[in-house]
């Protein structure tokens, strides 16, 4: 049990997908204009990542690896992720239309969010068990959500800042993201477990 907790803590803070590994930077920059939308995006990614981690882990260990087809894992994983994203898109359109409209183009783009595929591939690479894979996928997505919500909060304040003209808009957002990433490097000094 404690191993799982260590794994989760490490996935959220030390190996944070955005600030340490730089996965999933596209939605990180794209959907962080408003904290509410950022939270919605984070929740959508959390759902997709948790379920896709579970499905891809099973798919790999039970089907692809025994049959010697592990060279096809990326294609298979993308297929699963694309299917899941389609599913969540229909789900949101039906039950949470406001979030569906707010996420807009970034919802189908979760398909190509490298954080989701990254989580699936890390699970395989590290040889995580089924439980560990689900825990890792879930907590990596939590880390992603935390990062994007923090950043959206900062960006909401950036709108009122008065940076020099060349830095306005995206440049100052990128610099800010870099500074937050540097702050998160503090966690990498921690040794746990």
């Amino acid at each position: 049990m404690s191993e799982i907790l260590v794994l989760m803590f490490s996935a959220i803070f030390i190996e944070n997908f955005i600030f340490a590994k730089f996965y999933g930077c596209c939605p990180f920059m794209g959907v962080s204009e408003k904290p509410a939308n950022a939270l919605g995006m984070g929740m959508a990614v959390t759902f997709v990542m948790t379920v896709s981690s579970a499905v891809t882990q099973l798919l790999y260990t039970k089907v692809l690896f025994p049959l010697g087809l592990d060279y096809l894992k990326i294609i298979a994983f993308i297929l699963v992720i694309a299917g899941l994203v389609q599913f969540i898109e229909m789900f949101l359109k039906k039950f949470v239309p406001s979030l569906y409209n707010a996420l807009g183009i970034f919802l189908p783009l979760i398909t190509t969010n490298c954080a989701v595929l990254g989580a699936a591939l890390v699970n395989i690479q590290e040889g995580y068990s089924f439980i560990e894979s689900v825990a890792f996928g879930f907590s990596a997505a939590l880390g992603f959500t935390m990062a994007i919500v923090i950043f959206a909060g900062v960006r909401a304040r950036l709108k009122f800042a008065d940076p020099p003209k060349p830095f306005r808009g995206m440049p100052i957002a990128l610099i800010t993201a870099g500074l937050i990433a540097m702050a998160f490097m503090g966690f990498s000094g921690m040794s746990i477990g």
């Binding site: 798919l59 692809l64 010697g68 087809l69 096809l72 298979a76 297929l79 389609q86 599913f87 229909m90």
Partner: peptide, 30 residues
């Protein structure tokens, strides 16, 4: 032989996901 198994696996995978989405699109129809 290998290539046939691979093709089969992907056909099954595609069919399963397709079927799930078809059901979902009916269930969540707007």
């Amino acid at each position: 032989m290998d290539i046939l198994i691979a093709a089969l696996i992907f056909a099954v995978l595609g069919a399963v996901i397709g079927a799930l989405l078809a059901v979902a699109s009916k269930a969540f129809e707007v």
